[in-house]
Design a protein around this nucleic acid. Structure first.
Lengths: 334, 334
DNA sequence: ATGAAAGCGCTAACAC
DNA sequence: GTGTTAGCGCTTTCAT
């Protein structure tokens, strides 16, 4: 039978309350009391029963992270950052995989799934603004990701438009003028692809550079293979270009590999740039110039904000929308 | 104030016990009772309090997964598989990141960290057999990974030696004789690198093919960049070879990219093979021949075994050691 | 600075 | 099939 707090109290010759104080960081306690408690804990190999604590306190010390998948560099790195940030605040993270399914994302937001947790960080990709408006959940929620929703939740998002703008200008500054945009999408819905493409377009406009329609490639899946295939098609079609901007790193990496396969040098013949700064970008050859979209910062901000909401209780304030700071990571591919 | 089970019982005009039965899938219940309960649940927007259930039942419905990192293709895919398998069994997963640190891996095994969970799946990489022997934990544990330990825990492991053996033979069958082994390590400790190299060596022996010492490269970090660098050095050194066996996919992928950069064709000039079958292997160009090390199967087996241990209670039986089935995924790189 | 007692909301015997 | 009762192990007033 596992020891209970009452056992510890008995062995330490104090009351249960004092032992509870010990575990909750109560400051005023004689050194003697403290050490008797510690001795008792060791002697009995006592472990706090967190279910009981949760029942009693109404807190679980756990938050949920709902993402479409784990085995995708961006989400894996995001998850890692969230887990670290949560760990620093003394919280555990249960990971829920939604597979990007509308119904699963919705049920997570509705709290139908998942264990009892104190709060939720979700990265929806299939939910429309109306779904989010309609979602009612009884715990604090912070949304993370690409789209800006108008819903009732706090939001921490990527500077898609500005990041793409900065990168495009950066390419201009390096003398590039005919840039292939790989993975673009024109859509009224502010998807990441649409927002990034908006930035690309605005940079052209501001710099007075014409966009070449043939060089605008998309929509295509945002993975390495389609990046490689798309750039191969561009070459086959005899298009002339001096740079490739992959709207995420996977596309850029795939394109870069294909360009090299075809005997082109980077950045000698063609400059290549990506977006996200996944870990592999820095390890590629040549290291990929990309936009650091602030994954770490997003994770940390989302966790901090969530903990704040949990601690003060969901306030009536208008939800905050935070845009992560971003930066161009200049590496040898440009 | 959130509704409790007593409220539901009152509204449905039944006892608490009956409502509890409803939530626990008790089969014998009149349709009328059932529907009254369901109506009450909806009316009150009632949610089961999992903390209370845990306290009362001694079960949390959650397992912990302790891995060195999430943002690594292999672990990300493993984590995803574990989460899916657990989901299928109605369990949630809290992910603990140990950073491959000895003390963190130990504290996870000792239950010092982490929330209260029903069981633990851990993939230690820094722990020796003695650490594992000494670890005592009060919940069921299933260990997963590369090394075979003698500890008191169940183990689900990768067929490192046999997988490497099969792949090496496969390369022989395709006429390759001078195979670069990238990432090998000779070590008394049965690390993945050592085990895979053992298989490589045994295949040579069985086939009566001499191993060429210059072609045995390692230890090197198991990532893409070091794969690329290592094969570049081999070429610079003027070594002759007709195949490259990267002891994991990252190395193989890096090497493959570098070979192509240098103008070699794959598999025309050089065959390339990897190990692990991470998702990207199939998406590479050309698609990478690799050993499917059974990640999905490992995850599923570990979860099933853990749930079994949780349900029957840690039995006194000798811990089982299970080796995942593996297979050579034949793709265009050979 | 420490103690006593009353729940938190559920499950599990056992009765009916 | 359904109801009664007694905890599970903690936190939290309220005393002292």
């Amino acid at each position: 039978m596992a020891a209970t707090m009452a056992d510890v109290a008995r062995v330490a010759r104090v009351s249960k309350k004092t032992v509870s104080n010990y575990f909750n960081g109560y400051r005023y306690m004689t050194a003697d009391t403290r050490s008797r408690i510690e001795a008792a804990i060791v002697e009995l190999n006592y472990k706090l029963n967190l279910s009981a604590r949760s029942l009693s306190s109404g807190r679980t010390g756990t938050i949920a992270l709902a993402i479409p998948e784990i085995a995708h560099p961006y989400f894996a790195e995001l998850a890692e950052a969230v887990v670290s940030a949560a760990q620093r605040r003394g919280m555990s993270v249960v990971v829920e995989v939604t597979a990007g399914q509308h119904d699963q994302e919705l049920s997570v937001l509705r709290g139908t799934r998942g264990r009892s947790v104190d709060g939720l960080i979700a990265h929806p990709i299939a939910l429309g603004a109306s779904d989010i408006d309609s979602a009612t959940v009884d715990i604090p929620v912070v949304l993370v990701g690409d789209r800006v929703h108008s819903g009732p939740f706090d939001f921490v998002t990527v500077a898609n438009e500005q990041g793409a703008y900065d990168m495009t200008r950066f390419l201009f500054e390096h003398g590039r003028r005919r840039i292939v945009a790989l993975g673009m999408e024109e859509s009224p819905v502010p998807t990441a692809a649409a927002q990034r493409f908006d930035g690309f377009r605005r940079a052209h406009h501001d710099a007075g550079v014409e966009m070449v329609p043939e060089l605008l490639v998309g929509p295509i899946p945002w993975n390495r293979l389609s990046g490689a295939e798309a750039i191969a098609r561009a070459i086959d079609a005899g298009l002339e270009f001096d740079a490739v901007f992959g709207l995420n790193d996977a596309i850029a990496l795939g394109a870069m590999a294909e360009l090299q396969r075809q005997g082109l040098t980077i950045p000698g013949d063609i400059a290549v740039a990506g977006f996200d700064d996944v870990e592999e970008a820095a390890l590629a050859f040549p290291p990929l110039t990309t936009v650091d979209s602030g994954r770490e910062w997003i994770a940390e901000t989302a966790v901090n904000r969530l903990v704040e909401l949990i601690e003060v209780g969901a306030s009536e304030e208008v939800p905050t929308v935070t845009v992560a700071s971003h930066s161009v990571k200049y590496r040898a591919s440009v």
